[in-house]
Measured scan of single mutants.
Amino acid sequence: ETQAGIKEEIRRQEFLLNSLHRDLQGGIKDLSKEERLWEVQRILTALKRKLR
């Protein structure tokens, strides 16, 4: 995994995270989306740690 590859994956995950946040802010309670949001946040945290 290169730095560029990790950064690209971070961009993808952040896009997905923002999309999930928008969907959930629409007021629709969706447990699967909430679980996915937490999963994406965990992935992002792990990726950012790899960059250090």
Rank of each mutant, 00 (worst) to 15 (best):
T2H: 08
I43K: 07
R36N: 04
T2A: 12
I6Y: 02
K50T: 04
I28K: 09
I10W: 01
N18H: 12
I10T: 01
R36M: 13
K29R: 12
K33M: 11
L17H: 02
K33I: 15
K7Y: 09
H21V: 15
G26D: 11
I43H: 06
L16A: 02
Q3I: 15
E34G: 04
A4G: 05
I43R: 09
R12M: 06
S19D: 07
L47N: 00
V40A: 06
T2E: 11
I10C: 04
D23C: 13
H21M: 15
R42A: 08
I6W: 10
E39C: 05
A46V: 08
K7L: 14
K48L: 11
R42L: 07
E39L: 04
L24C: 04
T45P: 00
E14I: 13
G5M: 14
A4Y: 08
E35S: 09
S32R: 12
Q3G: 04
K33Y: 10
Q25E: 11
I10Q: 01
E35I: 11
L24R: 02
I6K: 01
D30S: 04
G5E: 14
R22C: 13
V40R: 01
N18K: 13
S19C: 14
K7M: 15
S19A: 13
L17T: 01
R22N: 09
R52N: 10
V40G: 01
L24V: 04
R52W: 11
T45E: 14
K48W: 11
R36P: 01
R42N: 06
N18T: 08
W38Y: 11
R36Q: 13
G26Y: 10
Q3Y: 11
L47Y: 00
G26E: 09
L24N: 04
I28V: 14
R11P: 01
R12P: 00
V40I: 13
G5Q: 15
W38F: 11
E39H: 05
A46F: 09
R11S: 04
G26K: 09
L47I: 01
L47Q: 00
E9G: 02
G5N: 10
G26N: 13
I10D: 01
K48E: 02
G27Q: 06
K33L: 15
L17P: 01
E8C: 13
G26R: 07
R52I: 13
R49N: 11
K50V: 06
S32K: 13
E9L: 12
E1G: 08
I28Y: 06
L24Y: 06
Q3H: 11
S19I: 12
K33G: 04
E1H: 10
E8D: 09
L17K: 04
V40F: 04
E39P: 00
G5A: 15
R42H: 04
E9W: 06
K33C: 06
G27A: 07
E1T: 10
K7P: 02
E35H: 11
Q25N: 07
L31V: 13
G5Y: 14
G26W: 07
R22V: 08
K29F: 15
R49F: 05
L20E: 00
E39K: 06
L31N: 10
L37P: 00
L24T: 04
K50Y: 04
R36W: 05
R42D: 03
S19R: 11
E1V: 09
G27K: 03
L44P: 00
G26M: 10
Q41G: 03
A4C: 10
D23T: 06
S32L: 13
E14R: 06
R49K: 11
L24F: 04
R22W: 04
Q25W: 06
Q13V: 15
I6V: 03
R49H: 08
R36L: 13
L24A: 04
I43F: 09
G26V: 07
T2I: 09
R12K: 11
